[in-house]
Amino acid sequence: MLSGVIFSIGVLGVLYRRNILVVLMSLELMFNAANIALVALSRELHSLDPQIMVLFIMTVAAAEAAIGLSIVVAIFRNLKTVHVDELNQMQG
């Protein structure tokens, strides 16, 4: 329930905002919604597998945040903008 609501807020953020940083934050929201669903499932089914999966999701999310933010820094350095609609050229 809660995970569904937070996931759809994350989708809304990705679709609605044009700032690439806020889009990345909304991505983190969607990761977290999946984590809530998995922990609830783990409690419901008396199993630890979903919790292990949450640990791996957190690892991948940390890697994704590091890479994504360094891409943002590289984009900003070259183009001086983080506005998604202005990033429309394939070669700099």
């Binding site: 329930m1 569904g4 609501v5 996931f7 759809s8 807020i9 989708v11 679709l15 499932l41 199993s47």
Partner: peptide, 26 residues
């Protein structure tokens, strides 16, 4: 789009119950 996706997820969660093989860690 996000409203319909969210209501779909919430509705599914509401109407179905969790099924599956119970694990070994109550």
């Amino acid at each position: 789009l996000s409203l319909s996706l969210g209501s779909l997820i919430v509705w599914t969660w509401w109407s179905q119950s969790v099924t599956g093989k119970a694990g070994s860690h109550p």
